[in-house]
Amino acid sequence: MNQTQLLKINGLKQYFPIRGGFFGRKVNDVKAVDDISFEINKGEAVSIVGESGCGKSTTGRAILRLDEPTEGTIEFNGVDLLSLKRKDMKKARKDLQIIFQDPYASLNPRLTVRQIIYESMDIQKHVKRQDREARMFELLELVGLQRHQADLFPHEFSGGQRQRVGIARALSVDPKLIVCDEAVSALDVSIQAQVLNLLKKLQKEMELTYLFISHDLGVVRHISDRIIVMYLGKIVEIGDNESIFENPKHPYTKALLSAIPVPNPKKKSERILLEGDVPSPIDPPQGCRFHTRCPFATDLCKEETPQLRTTDGMTENHQAACHYINEIDFEKVKARV
């Protein structure tokens, strides 16, 4: 495969100030994303997984500059998006689309599907007026909606169909990268499978690149080529699908995978139960951020922040941020469930 880089994120930080006191001074920051770097190649499907508060959605929003990142660079096709002026950013958005979790909240309830798609085309002045209708019908067919549904309003659709409308809108400007922020999380399994298959089909047909943001590891395993695991604003592990699911190295990834119930009563899973909750991103723990919940943490973990690295027994592109990648004996902490 020809590996051309499409997106390169370097040292991205997204802090949200907390104001308080007399005159609304900044008293602290929510360190939602704290210095992360990764790349996405053309035609790839990359997923960011993690639990609530890990910074995965914030990363997606930062890429589209829906929030202004605090620090770092986001190179898209060789151009740093963060250096672009408003007008140029608007143009760049043609290539960058996002699909949200709740399709209902992201579609204007007063516009029909036809209007929603036209509006999106018009903003980018991308399709000629006389070609709009033909293109719109093409898109509807592509996402599995029928022609007569073009003049319906969002509330007349079911959740799965609305997500199809959202996808059609995103596709209407021929984007290069689509960020799917929990795009199938709100859907029932049978419908979720339909939409996942659709997204896969579209990727093949239109050579799309996806950044999937999801908490559902089943979905992630099914759709992605590479996976990024985040915890409290940091990347703890990154690698291809096979490496992450078959050979996870970071204790957090292990625990996360073992926590998911398996739909097979015969296969009793061996679980690493994590204690407590994720700490607050306002004052994240010193050293390794996972040390407060990690069953293997030592004094070193409390003091020194581990860097992402590849060791023996890991494939080339597989990295984990742990001081003890090859020294952990997971058998010791497994609880038979």
Binding site: S158, G160, Q161, V189, S190, I191, Q192, A193, Q194, L196, N197, D216, L217, G218, V219, V220, R221, H222, I223, F245, L257, I260, V262, P263, N264, K267
Partner: peptide, 21 residues
């Protein structure tokens, strides 16, 4: 339902969704 479910513990080639709604 079982065939629609994307799983993290095994590699699946294809999901077989239930058609319609």
């Amino acid at each position: 339902l079982l065939n629609s479910l994307p799983r993290h513990d095994i590699k699946m080639e294809e999901l077989t969704p239930i058609k319609g709604m």
